[in-house]
């Protein structure tokens, strides 16, 4: 066996940065006010329509969109800013839903009191899988381990009957208690909760983006070795980003539970994690507006098309492939190209 080739030598990434992927991540120059305005407009529609609509279906759809918006916006922190493929996002979403539901069921906690321990559990797990895998440059170990972790969490949830109810899932009988005089228990209340979390997530993402931490993440995405030569602690920054990303996903999960009233290991499936990655790729990685565009396209478009769910996923898969191959900067990139002043114009 000793004569077998050691294929790893060929796996060292080429010294020259691969162009398509780099380009695809997009520049984050602060000049794109118009893009930001469009993003805010999209967000406003997303938030305003369900808040004023009387149809239960619209409110339901709005809540679903808002929760997926949180997933996309939070994943963008590790994947768009720091350039690391995190493929356990649906697993953290499910983990949040289950942890909170189990705490409420077994320890008689209120919905609100279940949030801090749920966030802490997500942070702890993210750190535990982030540390071993994020020490490696290049992101391949991290992609592979988060994918495996996502599947693992799903399988353990499905097999641990006593705690989770197994593959049949859990019926949830609780709803968030009123807080500060606001009734969060109603359909509209849960919508407000989801929309609120989306706004908080966006605020966190924006704050990170324009902070020293965010700049360090972008530097890491662009060139880990160069970043570390300039004094940036690459592993620690990536880990911090992954912990924040995962905690936000888990919090979205805690809202999903009372929203649907039923949770099952299905919600942690790998294809759901991939869908969120798809939203980012289609919307435009690394931009603040991209995740919102991506959510609207990924969740909204199929709802309008009204084709069977399976074919919707096929179409979305094809869109991912097409975007990666032909429009590497996503929808945000396309819009940016349309609105960007011509060469020589003022910047």
């Amino acid at each position: 066996m000793t004569d077998m080739p050691d294929l790893a030598t060929a796996s060292v990434p080429p010294a020259k940065a691969p162009t398509a992927w780099r380009g695809w991540l997009g520049s984050l120059a602060g000049r794109r006010t118009l893009l930001a305005v469009l993003g805010i407009a999209a967000l406003a529609v997303l938030l305003a329509v369900p808040a004023t609509a009387s149809s239960r279906y619209i409110v339901y759809l709005g809540t679903l969109l808002a929760l997926h918006g949180v997933l996309a916006v939070s994943l963008n922190i590790i994947m768009g800013f720091a350039g690391q493929f995190a493929l356990a996002h649906a697993a953290f979403y499910g983990l949040g839903a289950y942890t909170s539901a189990i705490l409420i069921r077994d320890f008689d906690l209120s919905f609100w009191a279940s949030l801090p321990p749920t966030a802490a559990a997500a942070a702890l797990l993210a750190a535990a899988i982030g540390y071993p895998s994020l020490r490696f440059t290049g992101g391949i170990h991290f992609a592979l381990i988060t994918f495996a972790f996502g599947e693992l969490i799903r399988l353990v949830t499905a097999n641990w009957h006593d705690l989770t109810g197994g593959p049949q899932g859990m019926q949830l009988g609780f709803s968030p208690e009123p807080l500060l005089g606001i009734d969060f228990g109603s359909t509209r209340g849960i919508y407000a909760l989801a929309a609120g979390l989306l706004v908080i997530s966006l605020a966190i993402a924006a704050a990170i983006r324009f902070s020293r931490f965010g700049r360090s993440l972008v530097a890491i995405r662009e060139d880990e070795v160069l970043a570390s030569s300039l004094g940036i602690n690459v592993t620690a920054n990536k880990m911090a980003a992954f912990v924040i990303t995962s905690v936000l996903a888990a919090l979205a999960g805690t809202i999903y539970g009372p929203f649907v009233g039923f949770i099952s290991p299905e919600m942690m499936s790998a294809s759901d994690s991939i869908s969120v990655v798809g939203m980012l790729i289609v919307g435009g990685l690394g931009t603040l507006a991209g995740p919102i565009f991506g959510t609207l396209i990924f969740m909204g478009l199929p709802e309008l098309l009204r084709v069977a769910k399976l074919y919707r996923l096929v179409i979305l898969g094809l869109i991912i492939i097409a975007v990666v191959l032909f429009a590497p900067k996503g929808v945000a990139g396309v819009i940016d190209r349309l609105i960007r002043p011509k060469r020589g114009g003022a910047r």
């Binding site: 780099r22 991540l25 520049s27 120059a29 700049r215 060139d223 940036i232």
Partner: peptide
């Protein structure tokens, strides 16, 4: 510093220096 031209390709000059 590194041999050759090693920069953050998608960041502007200003952003690079700020980082």
């Amino acid at each position: 510093t590194f041999q050759g031209a090693r920069v953050f390709p998608n960041l502007t000059v200003k952003e690079s220096l700020a980082i």
